[in-house]
Design a protein around this nucleic acid. Sequence first.
DNA 1: CCCTGTCAAGTCACG
DNA 2: CGTGACTTGACAGGG
Length: 299
Amino acid sequence: MRIGYPCINRAIGCTANHTFRLASYSDGRLLRTVGDNLDCLERVLSWNVDRGILSFRIGSGLVPFASHPVCTAPWQEEFSDRFAAIGAFARKHALRISMHPDQFNLLNAKDPAIVERTVTELMYHAEVLDLLGLGPDAKIQVHVGGVYGDRESAMARFVETHGTLDPRLRRRLAIENDDGRYTARDCLAVSGACGVPVVLDVFHHAVHGDGRLIGPLLDEVASTWKPADGPPMVDYASQAPGRRRGTHAESLDDEDFARFLAASAGRDLDLMLEIKDKEASALRALALATGDPRVLKVS
DNA sequence: CCCTGTCAAGTCACG
DNA sequence: CGTGACTTGACAGGG
């Protein structure tokens, strides 16, 4: 199991998510920002590898405005060597890399213009992973999308659009159950219709699921992943105590995490910890999962 | 230097 | 009908 965290490392003191206002766009500003972001991404991956953290989700803001018409800078050519070097590092250490585009990406939107913008944005994500030279196990995980008052039709639209996607994108696409619209069962139905792998978010399943136990559900979800897709990806979080239901916890809940480990034992999967304190909880989860005695004694 | 309103994009629940 | 939440705050102007 490769454990990781999304997008941001709070310990190093750099961010790979530098951006700027659209109004202040210039090619120079964009290239400078992308260079800064790649510098930090490189540092984060290296920091992670040194500590045994082998999964990482790259933030969508790595190249700000990449899919916006304003973005005319040739960042792909400018940084192709740097992408290749970072990707080579990831392959050397067998890192599980993924991305998770923003919520306004809706492949099943009713408005064709929204679908078109979504495809452009998702193609940018595929381009980043291609430039890194990563295989199809480097996934782009999205939610199924909106319901629009008719779940069946909305799911059918997703399946139809999925069939029209550029193979460079389709081979990387995965869908994840969300916390209010599409359950894991819904995602499995969509997967059955078009073959897209399903990322199980265990917290979303707890907040908005059908009550099924995690173990059997993991087995069902795992069957949607073909060998080329890599081990199934699973997102984990726990409820923030006293906060509104569905809010992610600030730090790892040892007992909840231990329950997850017990329920998922013996299965090959890669785990993304969506906890607000990021790498700190990932390190603790890694220690708990591998039975590091120094940590186990404390808890 | 710190504070805070605002930032490309969409949907939906909630008050 | 306005606001917050969503995988993730960061930018930038004003005090």
